Simulated assay, not measured.
Amino acid sequence: MRAPRAAQTTLARPVTLSGRGVHGDRPSRVTLAPAAPRSGIVFSAGGAELRADWRGVDATQLRTRLSRGAASVSTVEHLLAALFGLGVDNALILVEGDEVPAMDGSAQAFVAAIDEAGIVDLPAPRALLQVVRPVQASLGAGWAELAPAASGLSLDVEIAFEGPIGRQRRAISLTPESFRSELSRARSFGFLRDAERLWRDGLALGASLENTVVLDGETVLNPQGLRFADECVRHKMLDVVGDLALAGAPLIGAFRSFRGGHALNMALLDAAMRAGALEWREASTATFAASEAPGQRPSP
């Protein structure tokens, strides 16, 4: 696995995407803009700035929503996954609307936008969060864990559904290359039988065959079928990448989950922070063994 970038990064120039929200079915427009070193990923929505931070998450049913006061921005996970997966540390996201546009239900359009904008290094050392002790969280039949690793972030995700999905498991070492080729094109999925219940809850109002893999019994309703035989577990892994971005910095460790989701991912981050399982490193020192002396967050 290659060594992590030593310098923080941002976008070279602004880039804008437009579409509709998959849950609210309202028009949405986001502009990804460069940001200064150590600013992190910040959403500007409803007159407020919302940092991409696990402590700001207030909803996890079928999406991850950030809020601050009366302002909120929903369905941030696919955009965050693209930024995190490609190694963008700092960006200002200007949101017109209350939800990130669904695009095709994957991170593909966000990856293309980041490529169009370009990624540049900044004059500041990159901060990383290293897992220094194992931590686990569980919700119902699902569980997730983080464990120490010498370098990089590995993901091992398993899902279990009835119908054509069944049990699927995939493991990768996360790099910009593996994110592009293995995860970025995997789309959201759902079951036709759940549609009316979700609509009553104000969810999936904008879901369609253009932004969701729809399953009806044993049948995939999308005319083009699946992009991968295991597209569903790949999408769950994509969601994990977006949710882990809310830790506030790239992680050095090993993630594993069974029957996970946004709520479980947030419970794991909460457990890791409370247990002191994550410690700050600079990129140049983040590959030593997790048993060495604890580090401190690099000073601004």
Rank of each mutant, 00 (worst) to 15 (best):
A3P: 10
L17S: 12
S18Y: 11
R20N: 03
R20P: 00
G46I: 05
G47T: 02
A48P: 02
L50W: 09
W54K: 04
V57L: 06
Q61H: 14
Q61P: 02
L66C: 10
L66F: 00
A71L: 02
S72L: 08
S74V: 02
E77D: 01
H78T: 02
L83D: 00
L86G: 00
D89S: 07
I93M: 07
E96Y: 10
P101T: 00
A102V: 15
G105L: 01
S106F: 07
A112Q: 13
A112P: 09
E116V: 06
V120M: 06
V120W: 10
A124Q: 05
R126M: 11
L128Q: 13
Q130C: 10
V131T: 03
V131G: 01
Q136M: 15
Q136F: 13
W143Q: 05
A144E: 04
G152I: 00
D156M: 11
E158I: 09
I159Y: 05
A160C: 11
E162N: 08
P164V: 11
I165Y: 09
A171Q: 12
I172R: 13
T175M: 08
S181F: 07
S181G: 03
L183N: 08
S184W: 14
S188H: 14
F189Q: 04
F189N: 03
A195S: 13
A195F: 14
R197A: 10
W199E: 13
W199Y: 15
A207Q: 02
G217F: 02
V220S: 10
G225W: 02
L226K: 12
R234G: 00
M237C: 11
L238M: 01
V241Y: 08
L246M: 11
L246E: 00
R259Q: 13
R259G: 00
A263S: 07
L264N: 03
N265I: 07
M266W: 14
A267W: 07
L268T: 01
D270N: 10
G276V: 15
L278P: 05
W280M: 05
W280G: 13
T285D: 14
R297A: 10
P298F: 15
P300G: 12
